[in-house]
């Protein structure tokens, strides 16, 4: 070891390099032959369909809470008519993608970390390797792609439900029809709101899939490692989602304004 580099810094740099190489290998395997279509579709089902209940509830509550919290301030300024537009823009641009991505980092990241971690501990990944199957292609590529494609769809779905929840929230103390609320909300959403949010959602999905798989795939050999893999997958995926969000917001700000 280099005597001028402290051990912890050395370990951190090694871990970053390992993760980077893992991501590069995943990208390389994605474009290789023999794509595992069946496993990819199974993972889309696992990531997408099985997250629907959690994402649905989160989306509705998000819209409802945001509306209930915003309404008194808007009433104070006599701008309650701006409520649908304001809530819709904040949901589409930031709240929806960020909150749903963090929820998915918890659900999907931990599930991938724990599943691959336990496969590592019980030698299932080794068994795959000796039966001439590339475990990176079968396990990692399919999961990362499924997360990259399904999480943006979940976010769009949650955005729609959040606006529905917002309409319900607006009707607790007010009286606005569903059609009027939606038309006002959609009137304030432009291409510049939706496109950056969708693009960053793909990155959120990719990061969650990659971190979940990386932590599981590189888990240690003991059963304790499975818990560590699942836990660290959630922590790192959540942190990276926030970092990607900050970068995406800065880029959007520079390009649009």
């Amino acid at each position: 070891m280099n005597m001028f580099v402290p051990a912890k810094v050395n370990d951190l740099l090694t871990a970053i390099a390992d993760a980077f190489l893992f991501a590069l290998r995943t990208v390389k395997e994605t474009f290789s032959r023999d794509f595992e279509v069946r496993e990819f579709l199974r993972q889309c089902f696992q990531v997408g369909y099985k997250s629907l209940p959690l994402v649905s509830i989160t989306g509705i509550i998000l819209g409802l809470v945001l509306t209930i919290q915003s309404r008194p301030t808007l009433v104070k300024f006599g701008a309650v008519a701006m409520l649908p537009g304001m809530v819709a823009v904040s949901l589409i641009r930031e709240m929806g993608p960020a909150i749903i991505a963090l929820i998915c980092a918890g659900k999907i990241g931990s599930s991938m970390g724990a599943e691959l971690g336990s496969m590592k501990v019980t030698e299932q990944i080794d068994a795959m390797e000796v039966s001439s199957t590339n475990p990176m292609r079968f396990l990692v590529v399919t999961r990362v792609l499924a997360a990259t494609l399904m999480i943006p769809l979940l976010i769009l779905y949650a955005d729609a439900l959040a606006i529905l929840g917002s309409w319900a929230g607006a009707n607790i103390k007010g009286d606005v029809t569903f059609v009027l609320f939606f038309s006002q909300a959609l009137a304030h959403i432009g291409f510049g709101d939706l496109l950056p949010a969708v693009i960053k959602s793909f990155f959120f999905g990719g990061v969650i899939g990659l971190v979940g798989c990386y932590k599981g795939y590189t888990a240690g050999r003991g059963t304790e490692s499975v818990g560590i893999a699942a836990n660290s997958a959630v922590v790192l995926a959540s942190l990276l989602v926030i970092i990607v969000d900050v970068i995406a917001v800065q880029i959007t700000d520079m390009l649009i304004l």
Binding site: S118, M119, E123, Q124, D126, A127, M128, S132, T133
Partner: peptide
């Protein structure tokens, strides 16, 4: 290619937990 000619029985069995017996056998 060479590994296709080698069978490896793991101590733990290493059956794929998420697959049925039939799917485990079909996999390789």
């Amino acid at each position: 290619e060479l590994r296709k000619k080698i069978g490896f029985l793991f101590q733990s069995g290493a059956l794929y937990d998420s697959m049925t017996v039939k799917e485990n056998l079909e996999f390789p």
